[in-house]
Simulated assay, not measured.
Amino acid sequence: MTSSALVDWELAGRTARRLSGQGPETTREEAAAVVRELHEAAAAAVAHVEGLTGLHPVAGGPVPEVAVVDRPGWIDANTAGMAALMDPLVTALAERQDSRPGPLATAIGSRATGVQAGGLLAFLSSRVLGQYEIFGTGGRLLLVAPNIVDAERRLGVDPSDFRLWVCLHEVTHQLQFTAFPWLADHLEAQIAEFVDATDLSPDALRDRLSDLVRGLADAVRGGDDDEAGQGLMALVRDPEQRAVLDRVTAVMSLVEGHAEFVMDGVGPDVVPSVRTLRKRLAQRRKGRGPFDRVLRRLLGLEQKMKQYADGRHFVGGVVDLVGMDGFNRVWSGPETLPLVEELTDPARWVERVHGRPAVA
């Protein structure tokens, strides 16, 4: 049994492409220039990121592909990726069920969830600027050209600066996983452990989803319900799964915070308007209106923003205490990755990993 039994991914993709829109208007020449400049910016970013972090890809490793895509291209990549990621979970759940729904019920259910998944993918496809694909592709960097153009126009920033700045973030992710291949293996192992701890009945899942929906109502009024802010992660309450999610959250906060640190750390010599970009991007991440806030909470994007903030605080704090070389001990292996509680207290990580009190 595969994830297509629960989600009709083909329908999800068609729905998302229909709802996503094409993005800002550009001439053929303008579009070609954007694609060319994004490829150039991604190539230029590599030296800047390596110089600031002191990291380099493993010798002889695969060279990641850089793909400049439109919204449908991003949707196609992510429907395939989500299906592959969900297959182990769905298979594990199916093996534990005493009885399975008939083919008609399966078809109806998968189409319904396919439409819902398509709506969520459409929302994301209009907002994601870039993405480094970790699983299933051998590593590929996606840059979503229409969204980058739309963002730079809305923010009123210098296009060349903004495109390089976005590439610095995504190339940092690329370097993290090409310099330390064990990191992807570690995340895959955490996903496998999460699946092993999964034991949800349909009734329990429905009850938890109802709780989440009630909490989301507060988002329309601009409230700060903690559970709603976690989005779909709020559905997971099993202690073992929560422990796994804590570890995954710590890793993702690290990699996102590291990328944020690099974006700011290159300085105005590389990106002249970096301070303006940071200020205006922070405003963009707050969302646009009530509907936007609801979807952000449903998808857990509010939690994503917290990852950026906590991760950035951790990386900056550790670098302040032990320098970049001392910080790079974090990549030594799973045992040196930060714990969730260390994200907001970098000195605790320094004491644990370096074996001495942290002194600024």
Score class of each variant (00 low, 15 high):
277 L>Q: 01
196 D>P: 15
186 H>N: 10
227 E>H: 03
216 L>Y: 01
274 V>M: 14
226 D>Y: 15
171 V>F: 06
208 R>G: 05
251 V>G: 04
228 A>S: 00
236 V>T: 05
224 D>S: 14
237 R>A: 04
266 V>E: 07
183 L>I: 04
285 R>W: 14
243 A>L: 09
182 W>K: 02
233 M>C: 07
197 A>W: 12
176 Q>W: 02
253 S>E: 08
179 A>G: 03
181 P>A: 05
243 A>E: 08
199 D>N: 12
181 P>T: 01
251 V>T: 08
262 V>D: 02
278 R>A: 15
205 L>H: 13
239 P>N: 06
211 D>F: 02
203 D>E: 14
177 F>Y: 03
259 A>H: 04
264 D>C: 13
271 V>F: 09
225 D>R: 00
259 A>I: 02
192 A>G: 12
275 R>I: 09
272 P>S: 07
234 A>S: 06
274 V>R: 06
179 A>I: 00
223 G>Y: 01
235 L>I: 04
255 V>G: 13
271 V>S: 07
204 A>H: 09
277 L>I: 11
228 A>C: 01
243 A>Q: 14
282 A>L: 12
267 G>W: 15
220 V>P: 12
232 L>W: 05
277 L>C: 09
204 A>S: 13
196 D>H: 15
249 T>D: 11
228 A>L: 00
180 F>N: 02
237 R>S: 08
212 L>I: 05
228 A>H: 00
197 A>F: 10
201 S>R: 09
201 S>Y: 05
220 V>R: 14
233 M>R: 14
193 E>V: 09
275 R>M: 10
174 Q>A: 03
